[in-house]
Design a protein around this nucleic acid. Sequence first.
DNA 1: GTGGTCTAGACCACT
DNA 2: GTGGTCTAGACCACA
Lengths: 127, 127, 127, 127
Amino acid sequence: MFQLDLKSRTSIYEQIVDNIKELILAGVLSVEDKLPSVRELSKMLTVNPNTIQKAYRELEYQGFVYTVAGLGTFVSAASDRKVDEKRVGEVMEDIRRSIRELRFLGLSQERISELLNELLEERGGLA
Amino acid sequence: MFQLDLKSRTSIYEQIVDNIKELILAGVLSVEDKLPSVRELSKMLTVNPNTIQKAYRELEYQGFVYTVAGLGTFVSAASDRKVDEKRVGEVMEDIRRSIRELRFLGLSQERISELLNELLEERGGLA
Amino acid sequence: MFQLDLKSRTSIYEQIVDNIKELILAGVLSVEDKLPSVRELSKMLTVNPNTIQKAYRELEYQGFVYTVAGLGTFVSAASDRKVDEKRVGEVMEDIRRSIRELRFLGLSQERISELLNELLEERGGLA
Amino acid sequence: MFQLDLKSRTSIYEQIVDNIKELILAGVLSVEDKLPSVRELSKMLTVNPNTIQKAYRELEYQGFVYTVAGLGTFVSAASDRKVDEKRVGEVMEDIRRSIRELRFLGLSQERISELLNELLEERGGLA
DNA sequence: GTGGTCTAGACCACT
DNA sequence: GTGGTCTAGACCACA
């Protein structure tokens, strides 16, 4: 499914969250698809089930999946999600920090603006 | 000098690093300027001196400042700062993911574009 | 008959219990009416028969239905239903807490009042 | 601080969440007050630290507290919270279920309406 | 089988 | 000291 980087500073459960979000955003996992069960993914990644569960719960908080106890965890329909202002604010904060870092790295305002516009024109994998 | 946001998920020492880098990049602190001593800044921000210490060490590692024992900590020449092309790529990838998530959250292309431009303007005078 | 919401945090068997209670209270199912058999309802809702079984057992425990082996499950007389003053008090306490939280979340008294009235109207024809 | 009911169907961490919310909503814990540390509360309630942490994290998700690693967990300022539409929806769903249950318990529409109005007139403990 | 909770105990980074 | 993560392994309710 994907690989973990145990050496990374990013915690395991966060890496799992990021990877699964990536799969959903890229369309590899579609709406209503079932995610691997906690125990399955636990074995696949050789990671403790509690850690997987923590990742799944975080994905649920962020609105990417929903859970039916006894059945499994599934990808949410985008239409079910109300525009989650709180989450939008969090993501914008992420971008704010990234832009700051680009400035630190020595990129000019113009160059950053160019790069962002390129990203905006891309229309990746969204159904 | 600047404000810390205790509620932020970003650790305090990292916020200090970021803020001082910004002050340097913005020209508020010039090459060879002396930074406040660890104890001074510790009092100014009401933060544990160890935390300031850690921030200064990180700034030194990144080439933004240098320390002379017994004299203090000073802003390095710009040529000493590390530039990291690889890091630029990673940060761009972060932003790409965030933009995808904004689309996923239901924001229109136009709205995303607006929000990004707001972010860019926020410190537009810096470049 | 009715719809289940798999995404709800409420377990499936509980949703079935609630829905059937509503049908009884609304008079759609009258005293001595026969409920669908476990197998029938299982097919109608595409739900595991064990889950239906559990819902029927709970309804029986609460005095809403009774079961005759070999014949089926039937709606009880209203007098058989348990009334629980203590429970009423607990539920009111839950609502009190929720209203406090709405205030805490920044909603005005007027807005809360509006929202409550909407809720009350939702199934106003039932009493 | 408060008592747990180990016999309750409600899980321990949820009881902790509910109790602390109650203390905050009632004004016993004020804005910027420090909650007991994870380890302290763990000892006070003779409950595993992980369980306390789970409760604190849930409180954070719901916007009641914020956390500074290395410092502690603190009550959020109401003004810092944007009106959290998602959370409002969740609370309204709680009330919806409670009203349904009151109907199940045999209360008439009019009686429920009366009771709700009484609750609305109360202005408890909010700063 | 599924997810959910809990304990015991370890290790880490930050203050 | 603080919170945060992770493992190992147990037990429960629900489908």
